[in-house]
Design a protein around this nucleic acid. Structure first.
Length: 679
DNA sequence: TGGTCGCCAATTTTT
DNA sequence: TTGGCGACCA
């Protein structure tokens, strides 16, 4: 029957099993039933999971009967690739079903759209679209210009999303995580109801809906059962970062089957703000009876001095059970803790070290610069450009968030679904003399039915009508065109003059669109699926769409710590380690969120194999809370305790006092207030 | 007077 | 890039 019914072939040991240590091997060849692999940073988690998939296949499990859920596309791609390198997949097989929770959900929902009451071409809203839709609802509810400050659209989406993902009542979520919005709880509840109704009416799903609908499918007596039967094994990576909804899905998928493998490390949980909770990994053995637990504790990635320092950070946690990581590789140098005069100096120091390492033979791509927020690398990017050091940046502003790309995507969506109000609202405002109010009026005419467009057209100022007609003609033409590529081209031509008119650097932005048209051409998919997939697997930057032109070139990697999860480099530079930034001010409110910031630093540090550089700019010019011209002295990150500093080689600028004022490493709280003057 | 447009300030992390 | 606020136009 399936793998767990077959004894492992004792005669020949595949080469990849021979490379594993006893614990890894036990995990990879676990015969059947629930398995929880607690894998500390750098202990070969990915290797083990890949080996397990390979072992299952070599034991006769059909690859397409294995589901592998990962947290990022990057991880999915890497794992499937590595697995394929271990065992040849049987010819003609569809291969392992691998991807993020959201993308796998999308595939299932497309299969079962009708059962869920969804149109076959249902649209998928990215976070920006969802926020825009919430904003429309807000205006309709009359919260646009209240005297009292009302949460802005992105906050509203955060509240909504957190509530849905945590599966907890709104009032509790608001009280605990958004206390400053409490007075608006009732208004928000009403709006969220309207928001979900509106999504249904428009035939669109947001990212959270993908999970909600998948859970509903998995729980269905007929479809859910067949889904359970279709997979012999379900494996989940980064289980410490799943939320309640995702746990529900996993449990539903395994309601009648017992072969489930989860891998994770509770000390690398960094998605609490997305309603993830490390409690879930701790509860895994309760959710699945007779779970076998295997811990991987030998670290193959980093040198001991790096691990000692990371362990010292981990040991500060108020509540957790950090494992002491032991390095398998010997030697190594202490991490360097570098105090810099300011962020400009920091940028220079990073460049110096990166270039020096390259002189020593370390390729740029073996080095990474990690930061808390994507904007921490602004000055560094200038300096890298000045010194002509090539780099690629992950995280931060993404391609789909650029205004002109959103404009174009909105038009692509309209080609599939003329009833897509959110897209109309955006596209109409590209026209001269059309703002939110005019767009709204035109939309109402469209929605009222009847003669549709002509009525809406009347609402537009005369100077906008020619362009507007052009857009509608293009949508008509696009609807009739055969291929996604042809459609995209037609729509690009129609929107080009508007983009050029609206943005000063219009020509450049048009080139970006060109790349999107090219991607549509190559995808060969239906246009509506092209847009849906784009939302779930967006290119990192405009460069990505042009293919992988830089693959054989060398480049430095810049990344947020969140985007660096699961990756490793020979040398790692961690920027801007001052209090208020790392940990972020936003997190200062609770021990829980400070713990998460600490784990984030731990994740950053444990990405390093041989070299770790920590930077503390003493004087800052861009403090998040300050004006842009503000400057002052910051305190080093509270995580850089005396113990941590003792384990590092500390470097201070020569022309600064060794201990600038307020810099002793303790957390003095000196308050300066003039409030009493105003009472 | 409603609505658009220009200018200034601020922005955590991501599927 | 968005949001808030003030100036200017139909």
């Amino acid at each position: 029957m399936f793998a767990h019914a077959t004894a492992p072939a004792a005669t020949e040991t595949p080469a990849w099993l021979g490379d594993l240590n006893p614990e890894q091997r036990a995990a990879a060849t676990h015969p059947g039933g629930p398995l929880l692999i607690l894998a500390g940073a750098g202990t070969g988690k990915t290797t083990t999971l890949c080996a397990r998939v390979a072992w299952l296949v070599s034991e006769g499990v059909a690859p397409e009967r294995i589901m592998l859920l990962t947290f990022t596309r990057r991880a999915a791609r890497e794992m499937l690739q590595r697995t394929r390198a271990l065992v040849p997949m049987p010819g003609g097989s569809a291969g392992v079903l691998g991807g993020t929770f959201h993308s796998v959900a999308h595939r299932f929902l497309r299969l079962h759209a009708s059962a869920l009451g969804l149109a076959p071409g249902f649209g998928v809203l990215d976070a920006g679209d969802a926020a825009d839709l919430i904003d429309m609802v807000r205006e309709e509810h009359g919260h646009a210009q209240r005297k009292r400050r009302f949460p802005k659209k992105s906050t509203l989406l955060d509240v909504y999303s957190r509530t849905v993902n945590a599966q907890q009542p709104l009032s509790g979520v608001v009280a605990e995580h958004f206390p400053w919005c409490e007075e608006h709880t009732e208004a928000m509840a009403a709006m969220f109801k309207a928001y979900t109704a509106r999504k249904r009416a428009l035939g669109v799903l947001d990212l959270d809906d993908l999970l909600l609908y998948w859970r509903a499918l998995a729980a269905d007596e007929v479809i859910g059962r067949s889904m359970q039967q279709a997979f012999d094994h379900v494996l989940i990576d980064e289980y410490q970062d799943v939320n309640g909804l995702q746990v529900d899905i996993v449990r539903a998928l395994r309601a009648a089957r017992r072969d489930v493998t989860a891998v994770g490390d509770d000390f690398q949980a960094i998605y609490g703000w997305r309603a993830a909770s490390a409690e879930h990994i701790l509860q895994f053995p309760e959710h699945f009876a007779d779970t076998a637990v295997i811990a991987l504790e030998r670290n193959y990635r980093s040198t001991q001095p790096i691990l000692d320092t990371a362990n010292a950070v981990a040991a500060q946690a108020t509540r957790s059970f950090p494992k002491e990581l032991r390095a398998e590789r010997g030697g190594g140098v202490c991490p360097e803790l570098l105090f810099c005069r300011d962020e400009g100096t920091q940028a220079g120091e990073v460049c110096d070290r990166v270039l020096a390492a390259r002189e020593q033979g370390m390729e740029l791509r073996e080095q990474a610069v990690l930061s808390r927020t994507s904007h921490d690398t602004d000055l560094l990017e200038l300096e890298l450009t000045r010194r002509r050091i090539p780099y690629v940046k992950y995280g931060g502003l993404r391609y789909l968030e650029a205004a002109h790309v959103k404009d174009f995507i909105a038009l692509l969506r309209l080609a599939d679904n003329r009833g897509d109000e959110i897209s109309w609202f955006r596209v109409l405002q590209l026209l001269e003399g059309v703002g939110p109010a005019t767009a709204r009026r035109a939309l109402d005419r469209l929605a009222a039915g009847g003669d549709g467009w002509p009525a809406a057209r009347e609402q537009l100022p005369a100077r906008a009508r020619t362009h507007a007609d052009g857009l509608v003609a293009a949508l008509d033409a696009a609807f009739k065109s055969e291929s996604a590529g042809a459609r995209a081209e037609r729509l690009r031509d129609a929107i080009a003059p508007l983009i050029e008119g609206r943005y000063p650097d219009g020509a450049l932005r048009l080139q970006d669109l060109e790349q999107l048209v090219g991607a549509a051409r190559e995808s060969g998919a239906e246009l509506r699926h092209f847009v849906g997939e784009l939302v779930l697997d967006p290119p990192q930057s405009s460069g990505d769409l042009a293919g992988p032109p830089h693959l054989d070139e060398d480049y430095l990697v810049l990344s947020t710590v969140h985007s660096a999860k699961g990756l490793e480099w020979q040398a790692v530079h961690v920027l801007a380690l001052y209090d208020g930034n790392f940990p972020a001010d936003m997190a200062a409110g609770s021990d829980e969120s400070i713990d998460e910031e600490r784990r984030l630093l731990y994740v950053a540090m444990t990405r390093a194999r041989r070299q770790l550089h920590l930077y503390v700019p003493v004087r800052y010019y861009h403090h998040p809370q300050g004006r842009s011209d503000a400057h002052g002295y910051g305190k080093p990150s509270r995580f850089l305790t005396a113990e941590v500093q003792r384990l590092c080689e500390v470097v201070r600028p020569a022309d600064e006092p060794a201990q600038p004022a307020g810099f002793s490493g303790e957390h003095r709280r000196i308050k300066v207030s003039v409030d009493s003057l105003f009472e």
